[in-house]
């Protein structure tokens, strides 16, 4: 799990290094959105690897909608 997360994190650093030249010239909201999306994806990635019985959104949504599905 640690090694996979490290691969993922190093990839994020790589992308930021490559793009930083362009990102610096753009308005600051770009940097904020990009960085928060990176953190969010790293968080989801680690959460997914860390726990065995995690909650998948589609399972959860599926159980809610199941009542109204015309065919089963």
């Amino acid at each position: 799990m640690i090694s996979l997360s490290l691969i993922f994190a190093s990839l994020i650093v790589l992308i930021l290094l490559l793009d930083w030249k362009v990102l610096r010239t753009l308005p600051p909201s770009n940097r904020w959105i990009a960085c928060s999306l990176f953190v969010l994806s790293l968080g989801i990635f680690m959460y997914n690897l860390k726990f065995d019985r995690n909650i998948s959104p589609t399972v959860w949504v599926g159980q809610i909608i199941k009542k109204w599905v015309p065919f089963d």
Partner: peptide
């Protein structure tokens, strides 16, 4: 104010981690 080109990599990575989680 957001550049669509710069958002491609973050959203790509987000969808990658979501593809395992969803």
């Amino acid at each position: 104010s957001v550049s669509g080109k710069m958002m491609a990599a973050p959203i790509g990575l987000l969808s990658l981690s979501c593809s395992a989680w969803f």
